[in-house]
């Protein structure tokens, strides 16, 4: 199982990270200051660090310099979105940064991206009778490959990675097409209809009234 250490001096934020990363299937430990984080890094092996910049005692940048050599990838979490701070973090070898306030989906996506880059994630996702190979970008149903357009594939992957979670239309649009969700469009609905049919997810991918869509895991 992937182990992640989140370091932030705010308990609510830590709880939020633990909860949302837990839902993505990772084990998330938490530390409230730099010293505690160092202790935990020495005791355990982590696949990823989520680091707040403004920490009491040892700050995030200093901590980063200390653990930089260990090879554990780091994502910065910061309330400052000043370019200089971001650049400094990236220069120190951070893999990515997330600016507060952040979206849970964005957090999950960035965590996944970094883990994937470091080869810590399985490249094959099995869900509801489908086998998705994220490297070859192939989707198999019973050994037979599905013919999907790029958008359909991305849509399928988004749901496959977030089972049991309601994805609203604007979140889906933002993630797949990018930019603001235009009010008068049925793009999302149409693509989901087509993808559902091809994937054979008519029963498991349901629309949640007034909220969006949710993929339930079939037992």
């Amino acid at each position: 199982m992937i182990r992640i250490l989140a370091v932030d001096d705010e308990k609510p934020i830590l709880e939020l990270l633990r909860l949302s990363l837990g839902r993505s299937g990772y084990q998330c430990d938490t530390a409230q200051d730099g010293a505690e984080a160092l202790r935990m890094i020495e005791q355990n092996e982590y696949d990823l660090l989520l680091l707040d910049v403004m920490l009491p005692g040892i700050d995030g940048f200093t901590l980063m310099e200390y653990i930089g050599s260990s090879g554990v990838p780091v994502i910065f979490i910061t309330a400052k979105d000043a370019i200089a701070d971001r650049v400094r973090g990236l220069h120190l070898g951070a893999e990515d940064y997330i600016v507060k306030p952040f979206n849970i989906l964005e957090l999950q996506a960035r965590v996944e991206g970094v883990l994937r880059r470091h080869g810590k994630l399985d490249s094959v996702i099995r869900i509801n009778g489908l086998e998705i190979n994220t490297l070859s970008m192939q989707v198999l149903r019973g050994g037979e490959e599905l013919q999907l357009t790029r958008k359909e594939y991305e849509l399928l992957l988004l749901f496959a990675r977030n089972p049991g979670i309601v994805l609203s239309k604007d979140v889906i649009y933002e993630r797949i097409w990018g930019g603001e969700y235009p009010d008068a469009t049925r793009t999302v609905e149409l693509h989901i209809q087509r993808m559902k049919k091809k994937a054979g997810w008519e029963d498991s991918l349901k629309s949640v009234y007034g909220m969006g869509y949710r993929l339930s895991r079939e037992s």
């Binding site: 934020i13 709880e15 849970i104 994805l167 609203s168």
Partner: peptide, 15 residues
């Protein structure tokens, strides 16, 4: 704000 938005998001997603 991060906490509020995040937890609200989790509640919103149901399950």
């Amino acid at each position: 704000m991060t906490s509020i938005i995040g937890f609200a998001d989790i509640l919103r997603q149901g399950d």
